[in-house]
Design a protein around this nucleic acid. Structure first.
Length: 959
RNA sequence: GCGGGAGUCGCCCAGCCUGGUCAAAGGCGUAGGGCUUAGGACCCUAUCUCUUAGGAGUUCGUGGGUUCAAAUCCCACCUCCCGCACCA
């Protein structure tokens, strides 16, 4: 039977909507406030976005069924730069973008024209995403919807950022960024051609004195200043003479250009050829020694300053260039000087001798300074020295420290003594802005930062994390790590949509900073949307009173012109719903949003309102590979819903992976799920509500198994192990059910529909948070009244679990399995099957062994001695083999089964097998079964098999 | 480098948290059978090795260890993937 998903889903969505089932207000029941990171509306959502929201929705629906008053709201994050960038690209008539909008996202052409206005983009995709969320059946309270550019939201953000500033958590400073000199704008990944992230490193400029000039060299290894023996100049380069602030420098043209953006005043004074510098000397800072400037072809004008300091003991390039130069022709006078240059070794590293550079050059077989092998040699020496090297005595006060540590220390010391400066340089050059210009590194002054480096703040956040539930547990250490390395973070930028900094209107609150405590705003937004309050009235006093319990209602009412009743109602609702019980998000937000979410909460709110839980999920792959525009494998969520139905999509996403793993989405799994659900649907349509009749062995068993499923599923959902839960409901339980059907059919029973009705009602109820629409339909088909989404979650009941029933079915199964194994190995076609159960004595021995094993005694010798010393069991000395095998039997079973066996001592194997084995064996093997106890007097035992019988392991004879 | 995750029977992947029901679920593939004019779809059976009695042997990246018992716990090593900032 084919299910018409669309029809069923529309039907139930309408009912939920009419009944306002998911509109949540304060009441006297316990609450759960479940939130999920709101979407950024710059594209329609695809399957990947759907995952986080679906997980959160299942969570919300689960708690709703467990009796909680669940608030699950949604907002839209308009703030940020990508939308702005998009608008610019539309304006510039960017072909690639417009084709994506048209073909990939299906945006009508006349609407694309309006996209030159950023808000139009956000509005369009906002509605698109919202429609998808509704179609997915998310149980959202839409009365609380908002966007982050709503005037009331801006008031809220102003309050947030002012509060942080009052607490001295916002500071001002300078900060390097990737920069487009043409646009006069910072650039990040989505502003560059090819979407490259501008990546830069910090070089240390060491200032060498040359006459009345400074010749700076750029290095990553400031400690090597103690090992410098000469400088390398490229004779082909024409260097610039410039004035940097008050000093006169000589650097390459490219370097001078870079310096212009690094907060320095540059004027150009003249030029000097590289060749003119050769053979002249400079003074090494601090050491005050004169060293020569020598020519080298590996020196590039684009890198650093175009001058390199030579440390031949530790830098393979320098060592090789020195060798090369010594071989070249030169004036005798210079040769004497050059020949006198010897490497100065300043670092000792295990595995290297006096001159690591020389050793590496020789080992790699380097030919000359243009040999690419030098790169490898450099990497090796640098790596080993950095992590394993120590500075030698000739480095004065730094001797003995590890290189990895010395780097920063020496840098600070050099800068303090004015021997050095900083040069920031892009490492992945060239980075081009979308406008085509080459990007540089710029130091921005007067940037506003949230001081996440503050140790008191970190401590509070750590305290909060320690008290929080983090799901899955594995991700917790990652949060601790992030808190550890977090430093100041820019919280304002100069472009994009958003709220202006209240005290500095040139800046806009950065979008990762205006989205950290907005869960509190869901309380406010309900009252904004129903027009109880207007943005103009939302003053500092209002938010202080609602969120922080500061001030009194009368004063606040006077200031805000909002009635005391409304103010108090808002406050009560906030106090009822806060704190956030669970926050859902993808794992990409762990090092930023989720951590900031906690940091900002602990900074602003009292401990009682700190968040309680974070749930993190992995991303979604499409047929095993990452979804990307260029691959064209992005499936818009709404298209997937209309093609396959919302419930199959929800189930396929959930079943494909556990929380943190990447979920591999593919159409086969969707259609597999559809088939499964269709079968279940047919089953539910057939069953009628009925009170179960008397219970036979298999009925008691399947009831116990159902209880077991309830327990397992409930525990799994509580830990958000939704894949496991769903798998239990849909698949694992199926094998139990088919065993049950096999048993019932063998007996030709016709009175099982009551049991099946009970089982399926339980399953459908548990399925409902996962596949809410079809579950409602099935629930109705089963003849249940009301909505399954509002019904009670099935509860585990220990009293419904029948240990004997479970154990006896296991016994039956293993006996049948033994028979088939024998048949398989011997390839006999059976005429007759005879089963012998163990006698009373063995059963007695079995139980005393079981008791001993349960107390931890597993030693055969000791058990044997104890059995013999007891008059009741001393006869075992005749059958030591039995004892040995029984211990093994027991040990190979799970503790749970052992316990059950211990509990139900009086289990009559013979009569059970006679009653239950006959029909089923007839069906499976086509012959009758005879059952004897080995102690029966009328026993038929021609091959003397009976004596091998053990409790729960009957002997078998097949003829 | 730092931090995190992973390595399972031809392939994909579950089991590991909480050791025993584990020669290890499920899917794909392969082989045989059913259905069909044929193909597809679907259903059944088999799928580490040996075995004419329910058994035995060797397996879960590699090497050790703990335990009566290890895919599961501990230690070391090897390989692969992801994140490392002003960007949502």
């Amino acid at each position: 039977m084919k299910i018409n998903w669309k029809e069923i889903e529309t039907k139930w969505r309408q009912k939920w909507n009419e009944n306002k089932d998911f509109e949540t207000n304060r009441n006297d029941r316990p609450k759960k406030f479940i939130t999920v990171a709101y979407p950024y509306p710059n594209s329609p959502q695809h399957i990947g976005h759907g995952r986080t929201y679906t997980l959160a929705d299942v969570h919300a629906r689960f708690y709703r069924m467990r009796g909680f008053n669940v608030l699950f709201p949604m907002g839209f994050h308009y703030t940020g730069t990508p939308i702005l960038g998009m608008a610019k690209r539309v304006e510039a008539n960017d072909k690639e973008l417009i084709s994506n909008l048209k073909n990939l996202y299906g945006v009508p052409e006349d609407i694309i024209k309006e996209f030159v206005e950023p808000v139009k983009i956000a509005n369009y995709f906002h509605q698109e995403i919202k429609a998808g969320m509704i179609e997915m059946g998310y149980s959202i309270d839409w009365r609380r919807e908002f966007t982050t550019i709503d005037p009331a939201y801006s008031k809220f953000i102003e309050w947030q950022i002012n509060t942080l500033r009052e607490k001295n958590l916002i500071i001002q400073g300078s900060h390097p960024v990737g920069w487009c000199p043409k646009d006069q704008n910072p650039v990040s990944q989505h502003d560059t051609l090819g979407d490259v992230e501008p990546d830069f490193t910090e070089y240390i400029l060491i200032k060498f004195k040359f006459e009345d000039h400074i010749i700076p060299t750029a290095t990553l290894r400031p400690e090597t200043i103690f090992g410098v023996v000469n400088l390398w100049i490229n004779p082909e380069i024409i260097y610039k003479k410039i004035t940097v602030d008050d000093q006169r420098w000589i650097v390459s043209k490219e370097c001078a250009y870079k310096l212009e953006f690094l907060d320095k005043k540059i004027t150009y004074d003249g030029e000097i050829k590289g060749s003119e510098l050769i053979g002249k000397t400079v003074t090494v800072p601090h050491r005050n020694e004169s060293i020569l400037m020598l020519p080298a072809s590996f020196v590039e004008s684009e890198t650093g300053t175009g001058v390199v300091m030579s440390v031949p003991a530790h830098a393979p390039f320098d060592y090789q260039a020195l060798i090369d130069f010594k071989k070249s022709k030169m004036e005798p006078e210079l040769f004497t000087k050059v020949n006198a240059i010897t490497p100065i070794s300043i670092i000792e590293t295990e595995g290297y001798g006096e001159n690591p550079a020389k050793e590496a050059v020789e080992r790699f077989g380097v030919i000359d300074q243009n040999d690419p092998k030098l790169e490898e040699a450099t990497k090796e020496v640098y790596g080993k020295e950095f992590y394993g090297g120590k500075l030698k005595l000739n480095t004065e006060q730094f001797s003995g420290i590890k290189v990895s540590y010395a780097k920063d220390t020496i840098k600070d010391w050099l800068i303090k003594n004015k021997h050095a400066d900083i040069l920031l340089e892009l490492t992945n050059t060239p980075v081009r802005c979308r406008c085509g210009a080459k990007c540089v590194v710029k130091i921005l002054n007067n940037q506003w930062f949230l001081n996440y480096g503050d140790s008191d703040w970190k401590e509070l956040a750590t305290k909060c994390f320690d008290s929080m539930n983090i799901l899955p547990q594995e991700i917790r250490s990652e949060f601790n790590y992030v808190i550890g390395w977090l430093r100041e973070r820019a919280c304002a930028r100069q472009h994009g949509l958003g709220t202006k900094l209240p005290w500095d209107k040139d800046w806009i609150v950065e979008s990762l900073s205006d989205s950290v405590i907005y869960m509190a705003y869901y309380i406010i937004s309900k009252f904004v949307n129903n027009k109880s309050i207007v943005s103009d009235n939302l003053s500092k006093e209002f938010f202080d009173y609602i969120f922080l319990d500061k001030g009194d209602s009368e004063k606040v009412s006077t200031i805000t012109k909002i009635s005391i009743d409304i103010i108090n109602e808002i406050k009560k609702e906030f106090q009822y719903f806060y704190p956030v019980d669970s926050r859902h998000s993808g794992r990409d937000l762990v090092p930023n949003h989720l951590t900031f979410f906690v940091l900002n909460h602990v900074a602003i709110f009292p401990q009682s309102n700190w968040p309680r839980e974070i749930v993190v999920n992995g991303s979604v792959l499409m047929n095993g590979s990452k979804m990307s525009k260029s691959m064209g494998n992005i499936i818009p969520l709404r298209k997937a819903i209309s093609d396959h139905g919302a419930d199959p999509i929800r189930l396929a996403i959930i079943i494909s992976a556990e929380l943190l793993q990447d979920a591999d989405f593919n159409m086969e799994s969707v259609s597999g799920i559809q088939n499964k659900i269709e079968m279940l649907f047919v089953e539910c349509s057939r069953l009628k509500a009925k009170i179960p009749e008397t219970f036979e062995a298999e009925d008691k068993w399947i009831k116990s198994k159902t209880q077991n499923m309830i327990l397992q599923v409930t525990l799994a959902v509580e830990k958000m192990r939704l894949r496991e839960a769903l798998h239990d409901i849909l698949f694992s339980f199926e094998s139990d059910l088919s065993w049950y059907m096999k048993r019932a059919n063998a007996k030709n029973r016709t009175n099982i529909s009551g049991i099946l009705y009970y089982i399926h009602s339980t399953r459908i109820a548990m399925l409902s948070p996962f596949a809410p629409h079809i579950a409602e339909e099935m629930w109705e088909k089963l003849g249940n009244l009301g909505m399954v989404s509002l019904s009670k979650w099935p509860e585990f009941s220990q009293s419904e679990v029948d240990a004997t029933a479970i154990q006896s079915e296991e016994y039956l199964k293993s006996t049948i399995e033994d028979i088939s194994k024998i048949l398989k190995v011997t390839k006999i076609i059976p005429q007759k099957i005879i089963v012998y159960t163990a006698d009373l004595f063995k059963s007695k021995v079995y139980h005393s062994i079981l008791e001993k094993v349960m107390t931890g005694q597993t030693n055969m010798g000791i058990i044997m001695k104890e059995l013999i010393s007891n008059p009741d069991t001393q006869e075992v000395k005749k059958i030591p083999d039995f004892v040995q095998k029984t211990i093994k039997d027991i040990l190979s079973e799970p503790t749970e089964i052992r316990r059950m066996k211990l509990e139900s001592k009086k289990f009559d194997e013979k009569s059970f097998l006679m009653n239950e084995l006959a029909e089923i064996a007839k069906k499976d093997f086509g012959v009758g079964i005879q059952v004897f106890s080995e102690s029966d007097s009328d026993i038929y035992d021609p091959k003397e098999k009976a004596r091998h019988a053990r409790p729960f392991k009957p002997a078998i004879l097949i003829e």
